[in-house]
Design a protein around this nucleic acid. Structure first.
Length: 513
RNA sequence: GGCCCGUUCGUCUAGGGGUCAGGACGCCACCCUUUCACGGUGGAGACACGGGUUCGAUUCCCGUACGGGCUACCA
């Protein structure tokens, strides 16, 4: 490929960016970086009715969070702007005129109501695939059936009209998809797509071709849902006379629901109790609120890695890749053709891997908001050490609180079953002696604490199992958690002794109850 | 319905005319461990079906089945 690689991610700002869209953005980004190309963001806001305020910002924030920063796009600079299609309206109109002049498109005056009625009528007659095509256009109201004067009269009278693509008859459209190989359509199957809507805005099909051409896009990497309309797109390039510079196409497999029934949709988040958006989204209405991966406690590196492997693999057994590494090894020909189910457990596993590899101090800064939301403000040093002890048992950030809340607050509940099973009155004297011994410790670090406590156990003819579990419950309230000696070190002498003393009294009560 | 695309363990996938069909998640067992986890070892677990082509098909071809997508003046 000698030509300059330029790709675009072209979302429609109709709401939060779906996780499937994020993967499309990722693959575009990886492909661009792999080939020293350019990654563009283009906002496809040609549908005024579905436009949602805030959606563009959401898209940009998502790309920023994940590190998929566009080289060109609205707010990112670039020489091919504007990058919002609503700001390019005149360009599309100009090109539509060009098509009209070339006899590749025509005016149509049929209203949506008339078309709906016609479809309904056809359906009642058993024809469920009515199309505005080579056959039906002959009996519709358009510049092919109407006289030129009539057409001019209607237009100057301000009658609404659309411009449609004149699909050639009895032809075959073929293109080479980089993921699927050769794909072929019979033009008799293709309808005369609307290019310019009655409101003067272009449809996706029109805007997409004009922009990709003008922006010199070399590769169109998009979801499989676009495969069926690619025939139209190829026809359009040819109609414009751009047949020699049609971009390469790569249609990505869809991300399916966890149960495999259909493509993942925003409703599935609530249905399966999983996030399907990168970031929290709060729209206008009460129910227009969806949780995101970020707020679920996922690390962006993990989301990237997980998404990259949903439908693609490097061909090796390696599966932990940073964004930079992915840029090195990514290639379109390793994209799997079949749809991939969204596997939330696998996403959690990836996140756990990244949490384990993340620096304790960094984790502390990510966990702090969670702890503070619970009403505690530990100092940085302490929180950092706690994160270090906890991180290998956390899959998402809130797990730090779930597994370690007792680090921040005094123990309010002891594991009574285990206390009852293990606590005996005779142990009390030993524990008091142990507390006294600990109070005299010069250093309060793990190795010293370990040898000191173990020596104590030995000297007093006790067993590990008689002492350690109770020590743990005294400190944490629970049997689960990091090593006892590490925990003691992190607490420090004062807090450790405080907890031990409080527990001794509590254990008596529990044992008697 | 029509058109287009797809189909390897439960899931994500590697592979490809002759392999013990490999890895990962999840699951089970064991080891490590005073606990939980991490880690380690091992285990169960797949080529949708039917025809071809071939000495030999999971792999190539054709059907069928199943799944998905599209079928708007939405993208």
């Amino acid at each position: 490929m000698s030509q300059k690689i330029r790709v675009r991610f072209a979302p429609s700002p109709t709401g939060p960016l779906h996780i499937g869209g994020v993967r499309t953005a990722l693959y575009n980004y990886l492909f661009a970086k792999k080939h020293n190309g350019v990654f563009c963001l283009r906002i496809e806001d040609t549908d005024q009715a579905r436009y949602v305020a805030g959606a563009e910002d959401y898209i940009k924030e998502t790309l920023g969070w994940l590190g998929l920063v566009p080289d060109e796009g609205p707010g990112y600079g670039g020489d091919f702007g504007p990058y919002r299609q609503s700001e390019r309206k005149d360009i599309y109109l100009k090109y539509a005129q060009e098509l009209l002049k070339r006899g590749k498109a025509y005016y149509a005056f049929d209203t949506p109501e008339e078309l709906d009625a016609r479809r309904k009528m056809e359906a009642e007659r058993g024809n469920h695939s009515f199309k505005y095509d080579a056959h039906s256009r002959k009996e519709m109201k358009n510049s092919l059936t109407l006289s030129e004067e009539e057409v001019q009269k209607r237009i100057s009278a301000g009658e609404p009209y659309v411009i449609r693509l004149l699909v050639p008859e009895n032809d075959t459209v073929t293109f080479e998809d980089l993921v699927r190989g050769q794909v072929t359509f019979e033009t008799s199957e293709l309808d005369d797509k609307v290019l310019i809507k009655a409101d003067g805005m272009p449809t996706y099909h029109m805007a997409n071709i004009v922009d990709d051409h003008l922006m010199e896009i070399s590769h169109v990497i998009r979801g499989e849902e676009w495969l069926p309309s690619t025939g139209h797109h190829v026809l359009l390039y040819k109609a414009f006379g751009w047949g020699d510079s049609i971009p390469h196409f790569a249609h990505l497999p869809l991300i399916l629901k966890p149960n495999g029934k259909g493509k993942l949709s925003k409703r599935d988040g609530a249905k399966f109790g999983i996030p399907v958006f990168p970031l929290d989204w709060k729209g206008e209405g009460e129910d227009d609120h969806y949780p995101g991966f970020r707020e679920y406690g996922f690390l962006p590196e993990a989301v990237i890695n997980f998404l990259a492997f949903l439908g693609w693999n490097p061909g090796t057994d390696e599966e932990l890749f940073s964004l930079d590494q992915l840029c090195q090894v990514f290639s379109l020909d390793k994209i799997h053709k079949g749809g991939a189910r969204f596997d939330y457990e696998k996403a959690r596993w990836y996140n756990q891997q990244y949490i384990q590899r993340t620096d304790d101090g960094k984790l502390a800064s990510l966990v702090r908001p969670i702890v503070e939301a619970k009403g505690f403000s530990p100092d940085d040093g302490f929180l950092t050490k706690v994160c270090g002890l906890l991180k290998e048992r956390c899959q998402v950030l809130p797990d730090f609180w779930e597994n370690g809340f007792w680090f921040f607050d005094e123990v309010k509940e002891y594991d009574t079953d285990n206390v009852k099973k293990r606590w005996t009155p005779e142990l009390k004297g030993h524990f008091e002696k142990l507390i006294a011994r600990l109070a005299e410790a010069e250093t309060f670090e793990t190795p010293e604490l370990e040898s000191m406590v173990k020596a104590f156990i030995n000297d007093n003819g006790l067993k590990m199992g008689q002492v350690l579990p109770l020590l743990r419950i005294a400190l944490a309230g629970t049997m689960k958690g990091p090593g006892v000696f590490e925990t003691m070190e992190v607490f420090g002498k004062e807090e450790t002794l405080k907890r031990l003393k409080k527990a001794l009294a509590a254990f008596d009560d529990i044992a008697e109850a």
